[in-house]
Write a protein that binds this DNA or RNA. Structure first.
Lengths: 212, 212
DNA sequence: ACCTGAACACCGTTCAAGT
DNA sequence: ACCTGAACACCGTTCAAGT
């Protein structure tokens, strides 16, 4: 019987991907599978639940890294495949913080990160915090990318600077050269991932040096 | 003439804070200041613009740190005062990623971070990326906190684990003791901020060791 | 210029009715 | 059990009309 529910949620994900989350309505989803809006209610109790379900379907698409790889490679691979899924469904990504999925698939993602951090030698007491920091930074990056928060966006860096007198923005002006160049976003993602892995590595080393 | 616009946006922020973003409508905002919904349009071109404006008003509340403090203290203070504002308006916080403010106040926040990173000795070429990483992690934390993504939330850690057979979740079970204890969220925030500052410090040292 | 009230084309959801 | 169609109480926004 979960077949019907999955069909509804996949249809909702499809509409969100094509036309944005705002285009998802009980009526629009129902009509695509030749039903009326009210026919959805036995399977999905509310629109809120439908939006939660869209996020679930997105999470389910993320590929887990091979458990044989070294811990830092596992973290990097997970981050990359997460970003890949996100880039395929940009308008859905903004719901990742506000509708945290509590599903087996979501749990497996967290388990993968916990395991990597343990293998890095991070003390048990620090693992949950580091998992939250890393996943928050990765999800935040991916949302920012999807929403165009990076890149010029609506206002070019130059136009932005013009909002305030130059005297108030010495750092912006010193960095004008960097800011006006459009950033290589994949390189930036890799550098962020490397920095986060470095934090984990340091947390692992701290333990070892205390232990030995 | 911007008085009227500010009144409208502050009213919208007030309603969002009291009753959630969903309670903000052209009609609800207008009626609180004894107008009809249509009377808002000369000042706010659309509801989307009104939601953008709510975020602007939130950003405007963030206190900047004293420029005399050491760079790492400035970063930590900015993060803390940002979190303080966010905690006072939890339901508004989720819009921070999706509606990035492009206003003088928002610009001053970024300028403060740029300046701190430059003072830390971070090479010009790395400052924009580190600013984005730090602000993404901080905003992500604050959204997660506001949305209850940390803390037990809807499903307790124990209930979460029950979604999958134990054999699939060795790390979760090893960490059960940590996970079942409710995290001290302010301490976690401080630890995250310290880790992010540490990344900046290392980026600064890397430069110095190359230079000398 | 600023505001109103009616109207339009949507919503999510409830409910009585059908098969 | 599953689905429908009408209805309710909302939306954002347009438009003609008022002052």
């Amino acid at each position: 019987m979960p077949e019907r529910k999955t069909l509804i949620l996949e249809t909702a994900l499809q509409i969100a991907t094509e036309s944005g989350v705002d285009a998802v309505s009980m009526r629009s989803v129902a009509s695509r599978i030749d039903l009326t809006a009210m026919a959805l209610y036995p399977h999905v109790p509310s629109k809120e639940a439908m939006l939660d379900g869209i996020v679930d379907r997105l999470i389910a698409r993320v590929k887990l890294p091979s458990p044989e790889a070294p811990w830092d490679e596992r973290l990097a691979e997970l981050a990359r495949s997460f970003r890949k899924v996100a880039r395929a469904h940009p308008s859905v990504v903004s719901m990742l913080f506000t509708r945290p999925a509590v599903t087996p698939d979501a749990l497996r993602l967290v388990e993968t990160i916990y395991q990597a951090l343990l293998d890095a030698g991070v003390p048990d007491a620090e693992v949950p915090r580091l998992e939250r920091l890393i996943s928050t930074a990765i999800v935040g990056f991916v949302i920012s990318e999807a929403e165009g928060r990076f890149g010029p966006g609506s206002a070019t860096p130059r136009a932005r600077r013009a909002l305030l007198p130059g005297a108030e923005l010495p750092a912006h002006h010193r960095l004008a050269g960097q800011l006006d160049a459009s950033p290589h976003i994949t390189a930036e993602f890799e550098a962020d991932v490397a920095d986060l892995i470095e934090l984990a590595r340091r947390a692992g080393r701290r333990r070892k040096s205390t232990t030995s």
